[in-house]
Design a protein around this nucleic acid. Structure first.
Lengths: 232, 232
DNA sequence: CGCCGATTTGATCGTGGTCAACAATAGTGG
DNA sequence: CCACTATTGTTGACCACGATCAAATCGGCG
């Protein structure tokens, strides 16, 4: 009896490429790990020792300059894959933002297993290509958008991403109200802004009637059309 | 007799994963295409109809906002792979920056061929992972570095990337003097800066004795150590 | 209630954008 | 080879956006 039988992301993670026997074999080389908010999993620049599937929770990928400026270069959600297979070192750090459950593998074990299972590699390739598309799109935001556009884009992105799988979405797969899984500081780290600028733009969007902020973490989209317009 | 026999990047492109018979088969579904500077190959948002290997020349990948702001989200060199396999649409445009020669495949043909050749997919996966690492690193630059740091980083990156394959490098694989394949406008599009700011920072680096600018396109690195320091 | 971290708000400053003029280079044709 | 033009790059003046520094306010928790 393997963990995988009851795994919440069994059919959404890359494991979906495998049949039951293969999943059983993969299960043999993996183990579960529970993370608390702030717990690090992988360090930038260190040897790439492990890879993992996210079962539950949200984690951030970060890059830092020598003098300590941090930039969040990616955020991963349940069923996403983390780590750097087929490479010596990891180009970024991975840290839990919420309580999180991950299914980790030693990189060498995983590399070997993947090479023997083309369907798994195929799934991983598709995911990596999608992630690259998303990342490149985010570059446009970082390099060219104003603070206002960045925050509007971010909120729309969140409303699309925070939809629980299996939960019927009220409107075309996007939520109208949700709790942000990020602090203002983290939002700043994602958008390349300071905490003060994020705060100011949020209150501005509220003042202009596009959103409401019932609590610090909660966001309600009032005028999605205007917000999309603002996002540029 | 296939084109591939005399292909300059036969052993560096993803084709290196294939034996001669397989390359012959791949050759059957591909064809060469010559591009002039400015020629487009793929459009952002359009159906992903083709993928390609770069044989010679340099091409840019770009994203645009609705109101026309452009950001270069990637630059590809000989032996690099372009296009979006296994996806319906392309998230970015591809345009030649120099005269270029590419080996193009219909996406559906390539997808089918790739699925039947795991070694090719493996090579493509490794490349995509490397590209993702590079792209994420660039996000840090776009979001957090000052104009001065951006330009210094860019010049160092160029000095490392413009090394001709097979040519012995004077110093550890990095050139001390080279011609930029980009206009000031394009450098701005890569760094998320305006043309004026790029120009100002270049003259500043020259004034400070870190580089020399013999012609508009040529750069000579005088004090690499200081430049690395500046790059942050 | 009092404490502490997170967030908001305010005042000020500096970097890089914008607009404009000018210089240098490449390209064209007599 | 030299005008003449078009393109590309440089420089200057000014301004706005977002960063920085500082203070006030909110919210959670003992």
């Amino acid at each position: 009896m393997s963990y995988c039988d009851t795994c919440l992301v069994r059919n959404r993670a890359i494991c979906a490429a495998l049949d039951n026997n293969e999943v059983e074999a993969l299960n043999g080389i993996g183990r579960r790990k529970q993370l608390e908010p702030g717990d690090p999993l992988i360090w930038e620049g260190e040897d790439s020792l492990l890879v993992a599937n996210v079962i539950d929770g949200i984690l951030k990928l970060t890059n830092c300059t020598e003098d300590g400026r941090e930039q969040i270069v990616g955020v991963v959600y349940p069923s996403d894959f983390i780590g750097r297979p087929f490479g010596e070192t990891s180009a970024y750090s991975v840290t839990a933002l919420t309580e999180a459950k991950v299914c980790i593998f030693s990189r060498s074990d995983f590399d070997r297993f993947a090479q023997e299972h083309p369907a798994l590699e195929h799934k991983l390739l598709k995911r990596t290509l999608e992630e690259l598309d998303r990342t490149r799109n985010w570059m446009l935001l970082l390099a060219r958008k104003s603070a206002e556009e960045k925050v509007a884009t971010f909120l729309l992105d969140m409303s699309a991403r925070l939809v629980e799988p299996g939960c019927e979405a009220p409107q075309d797969g996007a939520l109208e109200e949700f709790d942000l899984p990020f602090s203002r500081q983290q939002i700043g780290d994602i958008l390349g802004l300071t905490i003060e600028t994020v705060s100011r733009q949020m209150t501005r969007l509220k003042r202009d009637g596009m959103i409401d902020l019932p609590t610090r973490r909660r966001v309600k989209i009032i005028d999605r059309f205007a917000l999309e317009d603002m996002a540029g």
